[in-house]
Simulated assay, not measured.
Amino acid sequence: MTDTIHRLVEQYGLIAVFLGCVAEGESAAILGGFFAHQHVFIVWQTVLAAFLGAFAGDTFFFFLGHSFAEHRWVRRLRKRPGFSHAYQSVRTHPNIFVLSNRYIYGMRLVGGIASGLSGIPIWRFIALNALSSLVWALLFSTIGYVFGLGAEQIIGRSLLLHQRLLIALGIGVAVIVVAVFIGHRVARRERAREGD
Score class of each variant (00 low, 15 high):
R80K: 04
D196T: 01
V146L: 05
V74I: 08
L149I: 06
R7H: 13
G65Q: 06
L160E: 15
A49Q: 08
R108M: 15
E70W: 02
F83Y: 15
H162N: 11
H93F: 11
F61W: 12
Q45K: 10
F18M: 01
L159M: 13
S100L: 14
A49E: 02
S141G: 01
F181N: 01
V47I: 14
Q153K: 12
R76A: 14
A192Q: 14
F62C: 08
M1K: 04
I104F: 08
F97R: 10
L14C: 10
V98D: 05
P81D: 01
Y105N: 15
Y105C: 03
A49R: 06
L159C: 03
S84W: 10
V146E: 07
R78V: 04
G112N: 10
W44Q: 07
V40N: 00
D58C: 15
I182T: 09
G13E: 08
A174L: 14
Q11W: 00
F83R: 07
F68Q: 03
L31C: 11
G25Y: 00
F97Q: 11
L159N: 09
V43D: 00
E194Q: 14
V177P: 08
S133G: 13
L99Y: 07
Q88W: 03
Y103E: 12
Q45R: 08
L149D: 01
L139P: 01
V22G: 06
F55G: 12
G13Q: 06
V22A: 09
I120V: 04
E70M: 12
H93N: 14
S100I: 05
Y103T: 14
A130S: 11
I96N: 02
E10R: 11
A49W: 13
A137Y: 07
F55V: 11
R185T: 04
L160F: 11
A23T: 06
H93E: 03
N95V: 15
R188A: 15
V17G: 06
F181M: 12
F35I: 14
S84R: 11
L161N: 05
T142N: 00
F68H: 09
F68Y: 13
Q88G: 10
V186S: 06
G65T: 07
L139S: 12
I155N: 06
G25E: 00
W44C: 00
D58L: 13
F41V: 01
E26G: 05
G32F: 01
N129K: 05
I171F: 12
G148L: 02
A28V: 09
L99N: 02
V98R: 09
P94A: 04
H162L: 03
A69L: 12
G33Q: 01
P81G: 08
H93S: 04
I182A: 10
L160W: 10
S67G: 08
A192S: 01
Q38A: 13
F62E: 08
F181I: 03
G82I: 10
I15G: 03
V135N: 08
A36Q: 11
F35M: 08
I104E: 06
E26F: 01
W73M: 08
F63E: 09
L166Y: 14
L77C: 14
G144C: 02
R91I: 05
I155K: 02
G53K: 12
E24A: 12
G148D: 03
H71N: 09
L138M: 15
